[in-house]
Design a protein around this nucleic acid. Sequence first.
RNA 1: GGAGAGAUGGCAGAGUGGUUGAAUGCGGCGGUCUUGAAAACCGUUGACCGUUCGCGCGGUCCGGGGGUUCGAAUCCCUCUCUCUCCGCCA
Length: 424
Amino acid sequence: MLQLKYIRDNKQEVIDRLKIKNFDASDLVEELIKVDETRRSAQKELDDSLAVSKQLSKEIGMFFKSGQKEKAEEAKIKTTELKQKAKELESLMNNSAEEVRRILFEIPNLPHSSVPAGKSEADNEIIHEEGEMPKLAADAKFPHWELTDKYQIIDFELGNKVTGAGFPFYRGKGARLQRALINFFLDEAINAGYIEYQPPLLVNEASGFGTGQLPDKEGQMYHDAQDNLYLIPTAEVPLTNIYRDLILKEADFPIKNVAYSNCFRREAGSYGKDVRGLNRLHQFDKVEIVQIQHPHKAYDTLEEMKEHVANLLRKLELPFRILRLCGGDVSFTSALTIDFEVFSAAQERWLEVSSVSNFESFQANRMMCRFKDKDGKTNLVHTLNGSALALPRIVAALLENNQTVEGIKIPKALVSYTGFDMID
RNA sequence: GGAGAGAUGGCAGAGUGGUUGAAUGCGGCGGUCUUGAAAACCGUUGACCGUUCGCGCGGUCCGGGGGUUCGAAUCCCUCUCUCUCCGCCA
């Protein structure tokens, strides 16, 4: 969430910048400022009144000690009156404070100045394109869902039977390919200086709230009502929430964490060709990188993370492009997001395999994650994360792009991880 | 699942109704000493909100919420979480 003080001081700027995200904040901002004023004046009055009764209480204590009972009784009456007034002021203050928070939750993060205007993904800006587009022979041009059947490496039907759509079984070389990719991605991250974590796959409400999944995206997460825990949609949630309610030291920067995890997404409302085969699953595997950084260095870090992801795709020999998301496509919590898409040759479409974002202080403000600067002042940290990488669509592209009549070729960089160079 | 214990500052750990935001130790920061470091010694060291140009001043916070009282870290209720023992079990 945005900082209240920033909105107060830069009202028009906030409204203008949010227009890039196609978000009309004018009414919310007006209301926010009004309610905040109520809160502040209530607090001022309350504080003054508490100061008086606090002083009186101390005096009563002294009167009792020195045996001046009558004076004590007199003061008691006064404090009782003050108490009633304080109660009313307190509830006014609390109600306004709650209202302020409610409004703040509804206001998205401000987009970075480089975010292009636009309504939908069609308006995203392609900033880089790289790699050779595969040319498939006519007798070897099958979508991955046919290849997985042919080589019996992923069983969607079995998943339907045991769980439901979107929960496939990986089998034989399919399972080993998964394991190889996970290890490859983790090793690459560790070599780049990230600390590996194995996080919990279920998180509590406070964590879901900290990274911004709650309250608005509640329907996208699987929820265990009995224990009030949520299955993580990404390792970003546990990995970032490590730092909830902490005050870090400047020397701690940069914090670089990586985790492999299963990710669970309800994907309510998805349909059609988007969900065919591996294109969209309810459970999938992902290696996620997270950085906590000094505000001044956050955008350099974003570049570094972008380069890390690009290198993974180069090593996997997949043609890819990088997009800067437009205002309409950048998420609620993000200031700037860069997507990576790989070309999947048989489907002949670009598949999103990574999303790298800078949240600036938006998550940090929700999580109360701060650091002490050189002058001893506390400031909010900046948080960033990115997929490095999400597996299913990588597998889809690998299968489709590398298919031959003899079988599916494994890219060189992966062979030492898979232990085989061909799926046949 | 059953029984019990507990939740205090970055950490450890006192405090059972009256200037207690909270003893003490550790850690952190500054200094003395030292060629430098360590040790020792001295000093300092919470967060949030409001107010002020600033110094400052006021308020809140001892797991969360509610209550008793003129006054609560301290008493009562309630919720959550953690730990220990038993049971079950990878």
